[in-house]
Design a protein around this nucleic acid. Structure first.
Lengths: 153, 153
DNA sequence: CGGGACCCAATTGCGTGCAATTCATTTCGC
DNA sequence: GCGAAATGAATTGCACGCAATTGGGTCCCG
């Protein structure tokens, strides 16, 4: 008696679509705030990671953001051109490239500081709704970090 | 006494980042399932909308998916080349382009039917968690659909 | 009915994302 | 130690997303 399949393909039934739509919409929401800083949204995420810890290798940035070198290498080159980061081969292990903050890159943090609070306010969600949402979405990321295709005991 | 700013810029504090990461990860999760059908993930979303109602104009597809013609036009041309949709100017209003399903496009629905349930299972979330997450993320989309930059009474 | 405002799709240019491949370097097996 | 496997970044090719612009089509107002 499973309702004869309540149309699993309906857009409104999906979990994947609202995540996809919200991601695109958030990128658009951030654009006006990030434009004056000379950053795109993915570049901003890279800076967030570097502001937490620098220098870091390309692969550790990738592990944190779930991005690979094919995406990060050109992005980091643009951040380097912008003067926010420096890239140099690690002397300890010549395979690695260490990405460090320039003075301008470190200073940019102060200008980025008000952005999260301001944009969170633009959402018009209550503090409780916001917290619940943040926990929910992080739990989805955790679930996605655990591969299931092969099955787990 | 606001805790002296608990580092609003920390990646773990963001709502935007997990949405972004989850979106990319979901696209990767769907790829193996969609590859055999000859669809990319955004193309799959367009097909979901068309399976609900066809024909539709480019702009109504865009309104539903929050995408514009710059994204949809080349994507629809690829779906046309693949033989899943047809595009034709609307005789009623020559500005519009009506996107309709071909026989192959309509038939593809049967092959896509098992995908949502299968991939939802791969997440390893309980039914309750899944429902809560779906509602949460949809509420974020709704919040993002309501522009706030100018302020609402 | 004439013309300007508006609407819709297409195009252009740039920056991601990612699979697949390549190349240098390091590590490991023996 | 030495060659093979493994690792890390870069490169290539393709498909988005989206701002900005273009150009044809419709509507509207006098």
């Amino acid at each position: 008696m499973t309702e004869k399949s309540t149309d699993d393909l309906a857009l409104g039934q999906q979990i994947c679509f609202p995540v996809y739509a919200a991601s695109n919409m958030l990128t658009r929401l951030y654009r006006p705030a990030l434009g004056p800083l000379g950053l795109t949204y993915p570049q901003y995420l890279v800076m967030l990671v570097l502001w937490e810890e620098a220098p870091q290798s390309v692969s550790s940035l990738g592990a944190r953001l779930h991005l690979d070198s094919g995406t990060l290498t050109p992005l980091l080159k643009r951040l380097e051109t912008a003067g926010y980061v420096a890239r140099a081969r690690d002397a300890e292990d010549e395979r690695r490239v260490k990405v460090s903050l320039t003075e301008a890159g470190a200073a940019l943090r102060a200008r980025a500081e008000p952005i999260p609070r301001k944009l969170a306010g633009d959402l018009g969600l209550s503090e409780a709704e916001f917290e619940a949402l943040r926990r929910s979405v992080w739990s989805l990321v955790k679930a996605l970090e655990t591969p299931r295709g092969a099955g787990i005991p």
